Amino acid sequence: MSGAHPAGTGDERSLGQIVGDLTHDMTTLVKQELDLARTEMKQEAARAGKGAGMLGGAGVAGLLALILASFALSYLLDNWMPVELAFLLTTLLWAIVAAVLAARGRAELKKSNPQLPKTQQTLKEDAAWARAQKS
Rank of each mutant, 00 (worst) to 15 (best):
S2D: 10
S2A: 11
S2K: 04
S2R: 03
G3Q: 06
G3W: 07
H5P: 10
P6N: 02
A7R: 14
A7Y: 07
G8D: 01
G8A: 02
T9M: 08
T9S: 06
T9N: 03
T9Y: 07
R13C: 02
S14F: 01
G16E: 15
G16N: 12
Q17D: 10
Q17M: 08
I18Q: 14
I18K: 14
V19T: 06
V19E: 05
V19P: 01
G20A: 14
D21V: 01
L22F: 09
L22M: 08
T23A: 14
H24L: 14
T27S: 15
T27M: 14
T27L: 14
T28I: 07
T28G: 07
L29F: 08
V30F: 03
Q32T: 10
Q32E: 08
Q32R: 15
L36V: 09
A37Q: 15
A37I: 13
A37V: 13
T39I: 08
T39N: 14
E40K: 14
M41C: 12
Q43H: 10
Q43N: 12
Q43A: 07
A46M: 01
R47W: 09
A48Q: 11
A48T: 04
G49M: 09
G49H: 11
K50W: 07
K50E: 07
K50P: 01
G51W: 10
A52E: 01
A52M: 05
G53Y: 01
M54G: 02
M54Y: 09
M54C: 05
M54T: 07
G56S: 01
G57E: 07
G57F: 03
G57L: 06
A58C: 02
A58D: 03
G59H: 07
A61N: 05
G62Y: 00
G62R: 00
G62S: 01
L63K: 10
L66W: 13
L66C: 13
L68Q: 09
L68A: 12
S70A: 07
F71M: 09
S74F: 00
L76Q: 12
D78Q: 12
N79Q: 15
N79G: 15
W80C: 12
W80S: 13
M81I: 10
L88N: 00
L88K: 00
L88C: 01
L89V: 03
L92S: 04
L92P: 00
W94F: 07
A95V: 14
A95P: 04
I96L: 06
V97L: 04
A98Q: 04
A98H: 03
A99S: 10
V100L: 08
L101W: 13
L101C: 15
R104P: 05
R104E: 15
R104T: 09
G105N: 11
G105K: 04
G105A: 09
A107S: 08
A107M: 04
E108R: 09
E108C: 11
L109G: 06
L109T: 03
K111S: 14
N113V: 02
Q115D: 15
Q115W: 11
L116V: 12
L116P: 07
K118L: 09
T119P: 06
Q120T: 05
Q120H: 06
Q120V: 10
Q120G: 03
Q120F: 03
Q121M: 03
Q121P: 00
T122A: 10
L123R: 11
L123A: 06
L123S: 08
L123Q: 13
E125T: 05
D126F: 15
A127M: 06
A128D: 13
A130L: 07
A130W: 02
A130H: 05
R131Y: 08
A132E: 03
Q133A: 12
Q133N: 13
K134E: 02
K134R: 11
